[in-house]
Every structure is written in structure tokens, then in C-alpha cells.
């Protein structure tokens, strides 16, 4: 078993505010790991640190069991909270650009673009300008841009926020499909019905992972019906002490 991503004892603070307080996290190959927690709990910061977009104050990161290098980014798909698309360009041109900087070219690139466009249901809209896209379409295109180079590891920061339930379900089908092909996915989310679809979840609260494990095992352990309730249960425990 290899570990696509591993973070050990990560600390991070902005000015006086502590954002991450000794967070350790190891992903296993081929799992969907859900990072859940209220907003402001440090989810996005954790993802950015794992990616190398931000530097942790202390701690160690490994990507594919090595110190992160530019080359590791080739096997990595990142989707941020913002859509991060070029609005002046067409959907096709966007995908074409992101595929190119990932080192794809020629026929392979073209084929792959059509493939991912179909996967996110945008194959009919490839020639349209992104500025004419709806919010949901942009979100899907943004995901397609993260998929286009068929990475082995996905870091998806709130990929389904603001999408309607039908598309949301479709995307999760896609995530399971990617997982089936051997990819590892770490996904942050608010939505609790998505949590149940993860293999493992990590509960992040005020910069600490307060619980980690398979959703079912966790709910059983705390004797609650939903993962959401675990937050409340732990809080009560803390008050009780």
C-alpha cells in the first residue's frame, strides 16, 4: 500500500490566528477522503498546504512518498473554490490550455478533452465562451480542467458547492468512477449526504482533526445517527470535562 499524500504535524498560523494545530493526515491509495468541518476550520488551508501552494510553519509533506517536486504535479488534479477559468476563452480553449501545460499534445490531447467534456456533460458547449456559462457549467468545466490530464491524485476544494442535486449526484458518480480506475481523491465538503459516500472522513474543527475514520464506524463509535452529530457530541464531551 502506498501513500499518495502524507502530511505530518502541520502547523500554520496567520498573524495571531492559529489555522492548523498539529494536523497529521495520510491518504491511502484508491480512497475517497472527505475533509469536513465548519467554514473557517482550516479545510482550504490544509488542502493548499498539502499542494504546496502555501508553506506550513512546521511539519512535513510528502507527495507520492517523496518531497514535493514540480514533476509530482503532473499526477495531481486540483480544483479550487473559485472556478479559475479564463472567461475570455471558449470552454475548449480553456481545457486545451490546461492540458498543454500538463504536457499533453496532439491527438491525445484532443481526444482527452472531448472525453472529460463528456464526463461533465459539457460536450455540447465546448465552443461557447466561458463568460456565457452559468455558475453550474463553470463549476463543471473547472472540474474538467482538473481531470484533463488523468491525474492519480485529486484535491477538490468544495467541488459541488452551489450545484443542483442532479448534477451533484452525477459528479459523485464520476468520483466513484475515477476511484474505480485507481485514483485517490481528497474532497472538502459541507454537504452531509456527500459525507456518507466517502471511504474515510476527517473532522476538522478549529485547526485540529478531532475524529477520523469510516463514516459508519464513526457514527457507531459516538453513538449518533449522522456524522454532523459527531461535532456536537465531541463538543458536549469537551464541556463535560
Amino acid at each position: 500500500m502506498s501513500y499518495p499524500i502524507k502530511g505530518e504535524h502541520l502547523h500554520k498560523h496567520f498573524k495571531k490566528q492559529v489555522v492548523l494545530d498539529d494536523v497529521s493526515l495520510t491518504l491511502q491509495e484508491g480512497e475517497i477522503y472527505g475533509l469536513i468541518g465548519p467554514s473557517g476550520s482550516g479545510k482550504t488551508t490544509l488542502v493548499r498546504i498539502l499542494l504546496g501552494l502555501e508553506k506550513a510553519d512546521s511539519g512535513k509533506i510528502e507527495l507520492f512518498e517523496r518531497r514535493p517536486t514540480l514533476n509530482a504535479f503532473r499526477s495531481l488534479g486540483y480544483m479550487a473554490q473559485s472556478d479559475a477559468l479564463y472567461n475570455e476563452l471558449s470552454a475548449y480553449q480553456n481545457l486545451e490550455f490546461f492540458a498543454s501545460i500538463q504536457g499533453m499534445h496532439g491527438k491525445e490531447k484532443k481526444q482527452r478533452i472531448l472525453e472529460v467534456a463528456k464526463a461533465v456533460d459539457l460536450d455540447q458547449h465546448l465552443q461557447k465562451n466561458v463568460s456565457n456559462f452559468s455558475g453550474g457549467m463553470k463549476r463543471r468545466l473547472s472540474l474538467a480542467a482538473a481531470l484533463v490530464h488523468s491525474p492519480r491524485l485529486y484535491l477538490l476544494d468544495e467541488p459541488t458547492v452551489g450545484l443542483d442535486p442532479v448534477i451533484r449526484r452525477k459528479l459523485w458518480t464520476l468520483f466513484h468512477y475515477l476511484k474505480g480506475k485507481g485514483a485517490t481523491i481528497i474532497v472538502t465538503t459541507h454537504v452531509m449526504d456527500e459525507v456518507a459516500q466517502c471511504d474515510r472522513v476527517g473532522l476538522l474543527s478549529t485547526g485540529r482533526i478531532i475524529a477520523e475514520g469510516a463514516p459508519k464506524a464513526l457514527t457507531a463509535q459516538y453513538g449518533v445517527s449522522t456524522v454532523e452529530d459527531i461535532f456536537i457530541a465531541i463538543e458536549k464531551e469537551a464541556d463535560g470535562n
Binding site: L85, I101, Q102
Partner: peptide
């Protein structure tokens, strides 16, 4: 501001 720089940073581009 749109976040595309982050996407570039998370790619092998130098």
C-alpha cells in the same frame, strides 16, 4: 484573483 494562478502553480509549469 480568479485563481488560475493557483491552478498554474499546481501544475508542472515553471
Amino acid at each position: 484573483t480568479t485563481g488560475t494562478l493557483d491552478r498554474l502553480m499546481a501544475s508542472p509549469i515553471k
